[in-house]
Amino acid sequence: ATNIVGKVKWYNSTKNFGFIEQDNGGKDVFVHKSAVDAAGLHSLEEGQDVIFDLEEKQGKAYAVNLRIK
């Protein structure tokens, strides 16, 4: 899925991951530091509006192509 809109539920910059809540009511999506770095960001803030693509690997969904809304 592409261009999914959501809000950062939480992001832990020490542990380098967090979760994004989808605006469409879907399951929360894992986001890793690598996606944050690829977006040219240092971190994510709770409540921040983002747009992302959804990829699945080994049955787990995660956010890629992250951008600030």
Rank of each mutant, 00 (worst) to 15 (best):
A1T: 12
A1D: 12
A1M: 08
T2G: 07
T2H: 08
N3S: 06
N3A: 06
N3M: 06
I4Q: 09
I4V: 09
G6R: 01
G6Y: 01
G6S: 02
G6D: 00
G6E: 00
G6Q: 01
K7W: 08
K7H: 10
V8K: 00
V8R: 00
V8D: 00
K9P: 00
K9N: 02
W10P: 00
Y11H: 01
N12K: 07
N12H: 14
S13R: 11
S13L: 09
S13C: 05
T14W: 15
K15N: 14
N16G: 15
N16A: 15
F17S: 03
F17Y: 08
F19R: 02
F19L: 05
I20D: 00
E21L: 15
E21A: 12
Q22C: 04
Q22N: 14
Q22G: 11
Q22R: 09
D23E: 09
D23G: 14
N24A: 15
G25A: 09
G25K: 15
G25R: 12
G26D: 07
G26I: 10
K27D: 09
K27V: 10
V29S: 05
V29G: 01
F30L: 05
F30H: 02
F30D: 01
V31C: 04
V31P: 00
S34Q: 12
S34K: 12
A35W: 04
A35L: 03
A35P: 01
A35F: 06
V36S: 02
D37F: 15
D37W: 13
A38M: 12
A38Q: 07
A38R: 12
A39G: 09
G40A: 15
G40S: 10
G40Q: 12
L41D: 03
L41N: 05
H42Y: 10
H42C: 05
H42T: 14
S43G: 14
S43N: 11
S43R: 08
E45F: 14
E46C: 05
E46H: 15
E46G: 10
G47S: 13
G47Y: 07
G47T: 05
Q48E: 11
Q48M: 09
Q48P: 02
Q48R: 11
D49V: 14
D49Y: 10
V50T: 05
V50D: 00
V50C: 04
V50Y: 04
I51V: 10
D53N: 13
D53K: 03
L54D: 01
L54V: 09
E56K: 08
E56G: 07
K57Q: 13
K57C: 05
K57G: 14
K57D: 13
K57E: 07
K57Y: 09
K57M: 10
K57W: 12
Q58P: 08
Q58E: 09
G59M: 12
G59D: 12
K60W: 11
K60I: 06
A61H: 12
A61R: 08
A61L: 15
Y62A: 11
Y62N: 13
Y62E: 08
A63C: 04
A63I: 03
V64G: 06
V64E: 15
N65K: 08
N65Q: 07
R67H: 09
R67M: 12
I68D: 09
K69S: 04
K69D: 09
